[in-house]
Amino acid sequence: MFEADIAGYLAEHIDDRIERRRLNGTNDRGDLTGLKVHGLRVVVECKNYGGRVEIKPWLDEAEIERGNDHADIALVVAKRRLTTKPGDQVVLMTIDDFVALVTGQRPGTGIEDRADD
């Protein structure tokens, strides 16, 4: 339900082609499809969690999905506690993804350029 709520909100406010993606099995390509910025494809991983924010594992998962989907940008939409409004949820992304979002160009060539900190 969380994924559908976020997809509906983004479809209403950005592009009506954004929708909840069907499950892909082992080669997951994110939870939402149809989001583009500057013509760049965006993978969205939604996290409806009940506890602690897991930034590194969530961003790592989104990055793998970005590669699986041959997308340019990966981001995580995480549910905030005590609110169900889609517009109140938070977005996590790496600086490389933020640069691509703002400029329309992704620094480097992708996964192989990332340091494993």
Score class of each variant (00 low, 15 high):
Gly110Phe: 03
Val91Met: 12
Val42Ser: 01
Arg80Phe: 09
Lys85Ile: 07
Glu3Asn: 12
Phe2Pro: 01
Thr84Arg: 15
Trp58Lys: 01
Ala78Pro: 00
Asp16Ile: 00
Arg80His: 13
Pro86His: 00
Asp97Ile: 12
Leu92Met: 12
Ala78Tyr: 08
Ala74Met: 02
Gln105Val: 15
Thr26Ala: 14
Ile64Leu: 11
Arg29Leu: 01
Val76His: 05
Lys85Phe: 10
Arg41Met: 02
Glu3Ala: 12
His13Met: 04
Ala100Asn: 10
Thr33His: 06
Gly110Ala: 04
Glu112Gln: 15
Glu54His: 10
Gly67Thr: 08
Arg17Leu: 07
Trp58Thr: 05
His13Cys: 03
Ala74Lys: 01
Phe2Asp: 02
Arg80Asn: 14
Pro86Met: 00
Arg114Lys: 13
Arg22Val: 10
Cys46His: 02
Asp113Ser: 15
Ala7Val: 07
Thr94Asn: 09
Asn27Gly: 10
Glu54Tyr: 05
Lys85Tyr: 14
Ile18Asn: 01
Arg29Tyr: 00
Asp15Trp: 01
Asp5Met: 10
Leu32Ala: 01
His70Cys: 12
Ala74Asp: 07
Pro107Ala: 11
Ile6Met: 02
Val37Asn: 06
Val43Gly: 07
Ala71Pro: 04
Ala74Ile: 02
Lys85Gly: 07
Lys56Trp: 05
Asp96His: 08
Asp31Trp: 02
Gly87Ile: 04
Asp88Pro: 03
Lys79Ile: 04
Arg80Glu: 14
Lys79Pro: 02
Lys79Met: 09
Pro107Gln: 10
Asp69Tyr: 08
Asp117Ala: 13
Trp58Asp: 03
Arg17Phe: 05
Val76Asp: 04
Arg41Asn: 11
Asp69Lys: 12
Ala62Met: 10
Ile55Val: 15
Gly108Thr: 11
Arg20Pro: 06
Val91Ile: 15
Ile55Lys: 09
Lys36Ala: 06
Glu45Phe: 03
Arg66Lys: 15
Pro57Glu: 03
Ala62Arg: 04
Tyr49Arg: 14
Phe2Gln: 03
Thr26Glu: 13
Lys85Ala: 15
Val102Trp: 09
Ile73Val: 14
